[in-house]
Design a binder for these strands. Structure first.
Length: 874
RNA sequence: GGAGGCAUAGCUCAGUUGGUUAGAGCGCUCGCUUCACAUGCGAGAGGUCGUAGGUUCGAGUCCUACUGUCUCUACCA
């Protein structure tokens, strides 16, 4: 097949993906002869389309999966989507709004029908996008958090937790979003420092001229005040404790109570207590047996308890009116500007109201403990390590998890209330009658579960739990969990305690966290900034491989990275380089019988590149194992571009185009061997281009996807030979360098004279040196004086390189050049010498380092002598 | 308030358990239509590794403080 001159990914990416699918390469079987390697996808929300964060997620995971698959593991990448309860519901409500409809207008059933239609549309789209990325996921196991299997797991877990007393229902302060009209968990509230005010209010003591001043940031909640608290140690208020205050505007009589919780230094030292609208004050209310008066409705308007003049008013309008009224009655002392942390809904960004409400909770303390232990005892390991601290921090201070949501899209809570006897029925299967009174009038709880309740079960619900399926048995626990560090609390932590609690095993052994992909200026990508990048557009322009390689290279685990077009371009150029190098190899192999490298005699250059390949294999394998994908990718980039293309391909040309048939066969064998291995090493990162080239390579069959990953072979390391050959490369560089320094065009051939120890090495590679350095002939001399004409010289480790450049040589400049080189060498000698003079170094440093330093010193001394001699002869 | 990250070339970033002369890409300078590739080739310039101490034979790497910056987290009304 003819290869195009430039790399054009559109020619083959879609075609190859389709073929992989048809051949069933993505399918993982529970094969007892293999070791399983499992990763479950961080399920993207069905709310929209993929962004670069997903692209990074999936590139990392797919690279690991492909790597392991090639190493012979039964590698399973389990794909799927998340129903994203609240996020999706918000979107659907928005969509309906365009039709002028509300949830109430269409009803629950119709709403859910719309939601499923949404899921089909966007879930499908996400799958297509993942395929475009080249992700080798097992689509036959595609999961969805609300599919039958996952729903079964949700019920199982809910009922189990309930029966163990780890799920309870109660009136607690929760975070309420008045716009989404649902409770939120603590993790779903985002705080931001907002500029507001501090209102100082005067509460008069009953039947007295005394008063207490309290300060508040939410004056509208004063309507629900049922006490004022002061610190018992506060001398200012000692005499007030136990007295009765008259609440302004309302007229309710409320007590002054003493509570240690009050900070004497802050504000006025007196706190109004509104148990229904503040978590701390709720606690305080419990301590003092105070009445809980809720003054706000679910939609953020004031209710009848707020009093006639405020009933029905929006909370912010009510705030204004209350402040006005307080001012009018003289209760307002002053208004101070104040910046404080205000909670916002993570989906719609409305200001969250802490409100007392009846909700379902998961008791966290008993679940958190073993989850912490698992990480302490290294059953789960975080990469980078530092994230375990963040995990501990959160887990140790964890509070009960509010799991009920007043939404329709999600797992409906499996709890029924008997309308006849009031019995609460918690069951895995829908009950038909009340087990207590046999009554048939059962009403299911209206609420659904927090979306993260089902995601927490993802590593095992997708594999068959609670049933003991073959998949669950073989692939669970999973191996690596890879996602962004921004969802450690939402997801990773919850999977850990859920896995331990429900399966008795940690759900994965490694947590690999990556950072956030930012824009070119380092800003977070967001809809409001309009700086988001659509991976599909990038793929359309540059190909999936270029995007994948760009996302992974130069990035360390856990670090944020910046996306830039120029980086993708650079990687596209790399793909083009690889493409053309392959084209070169394939063109030269055309019509030839390419032998195995075991069947040819390897020259010095051949051994050098094979040696480089082996160290590259070692480096890539090692770093993949450490999840250092950036380093592995970097090693491959350097090896392919610098070592293979810039050096070996050029070196091979003298053999390929020469007369010696054996040398030609040798070069061809090595070219094919090295390229084939490089492609395999590269395949986990850039699956498409490597597959396309692999199929055009001589002596390959089948797909690179299922080829064996290269293994380091010590017999091919050729350390000594490679080092010796590097001397030849140094000579070539020296000649090029000298020519450039006197503006001698590279195409102009020059004579090369060498003072050399290893003449055989030079002789064997003479053609290559002549070709690469632009040399017409090579001779050997003892020193410059034997040449008898103006010459430039450069001293390298085992050689002195002379290039007679006739008129071009400026003796004064040449002297200057040598002088500065001499100074540099002197510096090196001084550095090495002082090290070796240091007794501490000689005695304590590892022997090989000391030896290395000695050899270096010797080398530099030899070079100094030679340079001095050159200077003398000038 | 608590915790953490980052600070290395003009820009964006690598730098593995401390150990050769600190690297890459982009940009820059000079030169090349060399038969795989101008999405290229060759040769260069450019860094007191944020500041100050400390540990060590040896520190970009470990410790302490400081400065700048970003993030997470927390109930200060």
């Amino acid at each position: 097949m003819e290869m195009q001159k430039t790399y054009n990914p559109k020619d083959f990416e879609d075609r190859l993906y389709k073929e992989w699918m048809e051949k069933g390469y993505f399918r993982a079987e529970a094969d007892p002869s293999k070791i399983p390697f499992t990763i479950v996808i961080p399920p993207p929300n069905i709310t929209g389309q993929l962004h670069l964060g997903h692209a990074l997620d999936n590139t990392v995971i797919d690279a690991l999966i492909r790597f392991k698959r090639m190493q012979g593991y039964a590698a399973l990448y389990l794909p799927g989507c998340d129903h994203a309860s609240i996020a999706t519901e918000v979107k659907i409500v928005e969509e309906m709004k365009k039709e002028g409809l509300t949830k109430q207008d269409v009803g629950r059933e119709e709403f859910l029908r719309r939601a499923w239609a949404w899921k089909d549309k966007y879930g499908g789209r996400i799958v297509e996008q993942l395929k475009k990325m080249g992700v080798s996921a097992d689509w036959s196991r595609l999961a969805f958090t609300m599919d039958e299997r996952c729903s079964k797991a949700v019920r199982e877990v809910f009922v189990n937790l309930y029966e163990k007393g780890l799920i309870y229902r109660g009136d607690r302060i929760i975070n309420w979003c008045p716009s989404c009209k649902t409770a939120l968990s603590d993790a779903e509230v985002e705080y931001s420092e907002d500029a507001s005010f501090f209102w100082h209010l005067r509460y008069p003591v009953k039947d007295s001229d005394e008063y207490i001043v309290v300060a508040t940031t939410r004056p509208e909640t004063m309507l629900g005040d049922t006490a004022v608290a002061v610190n018992p140690k506060d001398g200012r208020y000692e005499h007030m404790v136990g007295k009765t205050l008259v609440l302004p505007l309302v007229g309710r009589e409320i007590p002054v109570v003493a509570d240690e919780y009050v900070d004497m230094e802050f504000g006025s030292g007196a706190v109004k207590i509104t148990p229904a609208h503040d978590p701390n004050e709720f606690e305080g209310g419990l301590r003092h047996g105070l009445e809980v008066i809720r003054v706000m409705n679910d939609d953020g308007t004031m209710n009848e308890s707020a009093g006639e003049s405020y009933n029905g008013m929006d909370r912010f309008a009510a705030r204004e009116k209350i402040v006005e009224d307080l001012k009018a009655c003289g209760a307002l002392v002053k208004i101070e500007p104040h910046v404080h942390n205000v909670g916002h809904c993570y989906r719609c960004h409305s200001t969250v109201e802490p409100i007392v409400s009846k909700q379902w909770f998961v008791r966290m303390a008993p679940l958190a403990k073993p989850a912490i232990d698992a990480v302490v005892r290294n059953k789960i390991h975080f990469t980078p390590e530092r994230f375990s601290k963040i995990y501990y921090n959160w887990m140790e201070g964890i509070k009960d998890w509010c799991i009920s949501r007043q939404l329709w899209w999600g797992h409906r809570i499996p709890v029924w209330y008997c309308q006849d006897c009031g019995e609460t029925i918690v069951a895995k299967a829908d009950p038909s009658e009340c087990p207590h009174c046999r009554g048939k009038d059962l009403k299911q709880d209206e609420d659904v579960l927090d979306t993260w309740f089902s995601s927490a079960l993802w590593p095992f619900s997708t594999l068959g739990f609670p049933d003991k399926t073959a998949d669950y048995d073989y692939f669970y626990p999973t191996d690596v969990l890879s996602c962004g560090y921004d969802i450690i609390f939402f997801w990773v932590a919850r999977m850990i305690f859920s896995g331990i609690e429900h399966t008795g095993k940690v759900p994965f052994r490694d947590v690999l966290l990556h950072g956030i992909v930012r824009d070119e200026q380092g800003r977070k990508m967001s809809k409001s900034l309009g700086n988001g990048i659509d991976p599909l557009e990038v793929i359309d322009e540059y190909g999936a491989d270029s995007l994948r390689f760009a996302l992974i290279s130069g990035v360390a685990p856990g670090n944020d990275s910046r996306y830039s077009r120029s980086k993708v371009e650079a990687m596209r150029n790399f793909m083009n380089k690889l493409w053309n190098a392959s084209r070169f190899v394939i063109m030269n192999a055309e019509g030839e019988q390419v032998p195995d490298i075991k069947g040819v005699r390897l020259g010095a250059a051949d051994k050098w590149i094979v040696s480089r390949l082996e160290s590259c294999i070692r480096e890539v394998t090692l770093n993949m194992g450490k999840f250092e994908l950036g380093i592995a990718a970097g090693a491959l980039y350097d090896f392919i571009w610098s070592d293979f293309c810039d050096w070996y391909i050029e070196l091979s040309k003298s053999a390929l185009y020469g007369e010696d048939a054996e040398k030609k066969r040798g070069a061809l064998a090595v070219l094919c061997f090295v390229l084939e291995n490089a492609l395999k090493l590269l395949h986990p990162f850039v699956p498409f281009i490597t597959e396309e080239i692999y199929r055009n390579l001589p002596n390959t069959s089948g797909s690179i996807m299922v080829a064996e990953f290269p293994r380091y072979n010590a017999r091919l390391a050729y350390k000594k030979e490679a080092k010796a050959f590097e001397g030849v490369m140094e000579i070539i560089k020296a000649v090029r360098n000298m020519k450039t320094s006197v503006n001698c065009p590279p195409s102009k051939k020059v004579r090369l004279l060498l003072s050399a120890q290893n003449k055989r090495m030079i002789a064997a590679n003479a053609n290559a040196v002549m070709k690469l350095a632009g040399v017409s002939e090579i001779g050997f001399v003892e020193n410059a004086s034997g040449i008898g004409e103006k010459t430039m010289s450069q001293v390298i480790e085992n050689y002195t390189v002379f290039v007679p450049l006739g008129e071009l040589v400026d003796l004064a400049k040449e002297k200057e050049r040598l002088q500065s080189e001499l100074e540099r060498i002197e510096g090196e000698i001084a550095r090495a010498d002082s090290k070796l003079q240091n007794r501490g170094f000689v005695e304590k440093a590892p022997k090989n380092l000391v030896e290395g330093e000695r050899a270096k010193l010797e080398k530099f001394i030899g070079m100094r002598e030679k340079i001095a001699k050159q200077l003398q002869e000038l």
